[in-house]
Design a binder for these strands. Structure first.
Lengths: 220, 220
DNA sequence: TTAATATTCAAGTGTTCAGTTGAATAGTAT
DNA sequence: ATACTATTCAACTGAACACTTGAATATTAA
């Protein structure tokens, strides 16, 4: 005897959102999509899944309404269906951080206390960047940078950091950011910059969260 | 070759939250728990699940960190592990409403446009209630009312509404609320009150959302 | 102690899920 | 047309899930 009724039907629908979020690979795909529209190929490569599998996950995300797909010539581009989805992901992260012991343990194991304590807050960064007090460093791949980045940010993917480190101003503090609060690229960049004797910190969040807060984003 | 690395491990953990939210019965249980601490028996009865099954779902919710369990004498009480969980549920609802066509259809089928348009917003209600302009009506069962309710609210469960309708002031507008935005009790109450010629609307949300916003709650 | 109650555990069943592989589709370029 | 590409579909495997049933555990009451 399966249940019926308005409320239960609604919950069945709500559960679809939950189901879409119930797989680590899908969450990873969502984080990539949150950087801007991307093709299946790019997403498959970025997430390390094979095409068919990535495609299936993406369709599941689309059926749950979290992303939309549009075909452009040869390829299909997926993008977030709205900013509320970023908020939802943020909320999941927040609850996980606070309520799941394993998350706290993981963060403790992989990140030093110093990494944890240092991040700069979005509004503070905005203020200091406008006054020219800091260099904003975007360590994501160029495609993601082009799809949108913090105003005035310099794009140096992690791989090229060593070789281009000389071009960064020595006297200003450098604020690195990437895809989200746990994007390892930014942590790594900060570590390397500090090893070179530069003053560096990371932004507490990534670009999607920045955008969600309505802060200015530069394109191209 | 299963994936590894800090980020993926984190996403695996985040996915646990999603999985916990991926079942309609668990979402329903969460809505009940959001009204206040409840025993397994109460929750099983309220949700129409049998004991063992309810217990299993509750344990899954607990393992995902969404609820906590404490044993008190003979029975185990489950409660939300924090207000951020209410926020998360709210967010899921919000995304579902805006992104899943079936939800819009369901709402359209079960609720008249009038029901949809009439709800009063929390802050507005607070202001008008303080001035004594409205009667606030809590249509939830007494246990839930006792665990916390809007300041000055009158508790009349739906079943007793007809018989106690006379005791409500005739001249003031009545604002009904219950467990959440889709709790049917409030819709139903408003419909019945209007049929009796009273002026009635419902609160846009339920008690948990009210509490989440930091608005005052009366206990007992 | 024994009995009663609330909750959980354990085992079984049918269903759904994640991931793989290979074929099918639908556009684009030649 | 033909070949080529990006994406999706279809079929399959092993694992996980929802739910049921009946037994086990733990706490209180008699």
């Amino acid at each position: 005897m399966s249940k019926s009724g308005f409320k239960h039907e609604l919950f069945v629908q709500f559960a679809r959102i939950g189901k879409a979020l119930s797989n680590a690979n899908r969450l990873e795909l969502l984080e990539f999509i949150a950087q801007g529209a991307r093709s299946v190929e790019e997403l498959a490569k970025a997430s390390g899944l094979n095409f068919a599998n990535a495609s299936q996950h993406l369709q599941e995300l689309r059926q749950a309404g979290l992303v939309t797909a549009r075909k452009e010539g040869l390829r299909v581009y997926y993008e977030l269906s709205g900013d509320d989805v970023i908020g939802l992901l943020d909320n999941v992260r927040h609850v996980a951080e606070h309520r799941i012991a394993e998350v706290q343990k993981l963060v403790g194991t992989y990140l030093s206390a110093k990494d944890e304590l240092e991040p700069i807050e979005a509004m503070e960064l905005l203020g200091r960047a406008r006054k020219g007090l800091v260099t904003v460093l975007d360590v994501r791949p160029p495609e993601e940078f082009l799809a949108g980045h913090l105003p005035g940010a310099v794009n140096i993917p992690l791989a090229e950091l060593e070789s281009r480190i000389g071009k960064l101003p020595k006297n200003k503090e450098i604020i690195a950011y990437c895809r989200g609060p746990y994007c390892v690229l930014a942590f790594e960049a900060v570590a390397r910059l500090r090893k070179k004797g530069l003053k560096a910190r990371r932004l507490e969040n990534g670009l999607p969260e920045w955008r969600l807060r309505g802060l200015p984003v530069e394109v191209g």
